[in-house]
Amino acid sequence: MADWLADNTLLLGLALLDGLAYAALVFMVAVGLNLVFGVLRIVNVAHGSLFAIGAYSAASLGLAFASAGLPPWAGYAALVLAAALVGAVLGPLVERLVLRRIYGQEEVLQLLVTFALFMILEDVQKLIWGVQPVSQDLPMKLLGTVDVPFGDDVIPFTIYQLFVLPGVALATLIGLAWFLRRTLTGRVIVAVTTDKEAAMAMGIDAARVTLLTFTFGAALAALGGALASPTTSLVPGIGAQTIVLSFAVVATAGLGQIEGAALTSLLIGLGRSVAVYFAPEFEVVVPYIIMVAVLLVRPQGLFGVLETRRV
């Protein structure tokens, strides 16, 4: 083991850098899902579709900005703008038109409603953006690369992936924590997450909190997609893969726990990149193995709180 470590320290260092960027993207999607689950108690399968639509919208908006002759840095504005737009339009639409009708119904129905939305949105994406890969990588290219020393060699990393993605994720984590603990709206959300009935008895407008949270969660999913869009090419089906990974993060983290989501994303990101280097066959299984292992030891998730059992 010690020998192996000595031989591979440098590679492990590279794996760490790779894992960080990946973890950042995973976190952006999972944290929104977790927030929504905390308040609505709905596992939103359509969260993956919001990710995909956010990504496509960001790419389209970025391309539109570029062809309108706006300066290149407007590409970053496009990312944020697209995410906000998708959240503000689709969030309330889905919550008001669909989810609102099934609150209080059986959990399986709530889950399936979002599954139905996911199926519908999957085809809607295809009708809007077609099937050819869409990409807009200006925001990544603009920042260029930085050389990381590797023995006698150097390895170029893109600044976007090495600094921007983890930076935004960290900012989101800190901002969310501050928002939930220090602002009134945030505290109300936490109150509803912890005990909905008690919160409503205290006179909290649960309908408003739900709408707000869902919209916010949708915007986070879209932002995750938007941030991912410069590094990848968008094809049909990206939503399905994103969502299933986020499920693993949410269950591992503990429901409604944002710090848990951050730690889990980090674990999964690092685990995956180490696997790519040393055991590529297991790359895909890593998130699920982490999840099962964590839940074996802590059945309520890393940061989860045991719920009192009702008689």
């Binding site: 794996a15 993207l25 991912a228 094809v235």
Partner: peptide, 11 residues
């Protein structure tokens, strides 16, 4: 359909 190859590219 993997969305990201940065780790593979680094390797």
């Amino acid at each position: 359909g993997a969305p990201d190859y940065s780790t593979e590219v680094t390797r």
